[in-house]
Simulated assay, not measured.
Amino acid sequence: MTSREDDALARAAVAALTGQLALAPKPGLPDPRDLDARSTRREHDSLRWSAKALAPGLAAMAAAARRAGEATPVLRAELGAIGRSTEHSVGLAGGGHKGALWALGFLVAAVALDPGAKAREIAVNTRKIAAFNDKGAPRRPSRGSSISVKYGAAGARGEARAGFPHVRRALDALATARKAGATETQARLDALLTVMSTLQDTELLHIAGPLGLRQVQAGARGVLEAGGTATEAGAGALAALDADLHARAWSPRGSAGLLAGALFLDSLPVNSPAGAA
């Protein structure tokens, strides 16, 4: 059974995911512009609907961590079982969000284990949970894990075991852009591009290979080096990158899931000015 605290964490995580979906223009990624095109409207509506299907599973992950009280192999196995069940539920609701589910699930569990921790501490604390192997995981490797092995990429598991370094970089980018006077949309886009600029995105590796991944990373760096999305030059570079990725059908989905994780941590009351006082 979940508590009000667990349900609140799940709602915050889903809100972060839907906030990521609402952000535009996201290079190569679904965003509200898809609602204006008949060919993509249904897909975007499906993503928004299926995001809500994550809530029960995320609340259950938080409850499992709260009951456990510490990171253990048993907790890791329970989180894995809940996650796979949630994947099935999300699939029935329209699919998508697999990477976001696991990122948000680990982060929600880490918050439940240490409710008073700050955002960066929470991200680092996921290492304690991810350090254990999921003994209930299917023996057949997933596409993401196969790509990770093939190209030596960290992948979702490596990101969690490292304490979500790209989530922490996104949090830093949010703070920097806001301090510089960027709008919230511009700050979030800069955070996304910061992740894209260095993440070894297994989805991109699968679609575009190592050369394609490096091209996307360079494009994201180009926007940031032009001053970020709050500048005219940066906005122009973003538009060019967006057009290129959509034309090639290259989608940096791993970066989108990690941005959702950063937005979730950023939204927690403990990270607000009042909570930090």
Rank of each mutant, 00 (worst) to 15 (best):
H166T: 12
S46E: 15
R178S: 11
A65G: 08
A247T: 05
A13D: 01
R41P: 10
A63C: 02
L238T: 01
G209C: 11
P165S: 06
L92N: 10
R41H: 14
N125I: 08
S89Q: 15
R48W: 13
S89G: 13
A230Y: 11
Q215A: 09
A117R: 03
G158F: 09
L238D: 02
I129C: 05
A13Y: 02
A130C: 13
H166R: 06
R4S: 15
W250S: 13
L171W: 04
G116E: 07
A51H: 09
A170T: 00
T176G: 11
S255F: 10
R38A: 14
L17M: 01
A130G: 09
A260Y: 00
E70Q: 13
R169E: 12
A22N: 10
D134Y: 07
L113K: 02
N133A: 15
G234S: 14
A187H: 09
D31L: 01
A180F: 04
G57H: 00
A260P: 09
A123V: 06
P138Q: 06
A55N: 04
G83N: 02
K135F: 13
R168V: 03
E121G: 05
L58Q: 00
S251R: 10
A154D: 14
E70F: 11
T40A: 00
P27V: 08
R120D: 15
A240W: 14
A51G: 02
V111N: 02
R66W: 06
T18W: 13
A71M: 08
G158P: 00
A10R: 03
F106A: 11
L47S: 02
L265C: 01
A63T: 05
T231P: 05
A240R: 15
G155K: 07
A239Y: 09
G158H: 06
L204V: 12
R38Q: 12
G94E: 06
V124Q: 15
M196V: 10
T72F: 10
A123N: 05
A68G: 06
E203C: 14
Q186Y: 01
A110Q: 00
G105S: 09
L104T: 04
K135M: 12
V111W: 06
G254E: 08
E5S: 12
T126I: 08
L79Q: 00
L101M: 04
A239S: 02
T202D: 07
L23Q: 01
L245M: 05
L265V: 11
G163S: 07
G83Q: 02
N133L: 14
A55Y: 01
W102Y: 12
G254M: 08
P30F: 01
G155Q: 02
T18I: 15
A65Y: 07
R139Q: 13
K98E: 04
A170Y: 01
L113F: 00
L113Q: 05
A130E: 03
Q20N: 11
A12K: 10
M196T: 14
I147E: 06
A13H: 09
G219H: 11
L29M: 05
Q200P: 10
T194W: 00
R143T: 06
Q20P: 11
T185S: 06
A153H: 02
R248Y: 08
R4H: 11
T194G: 03
R76C: 05
K52W: 09
D7F: 09
G158M: 07
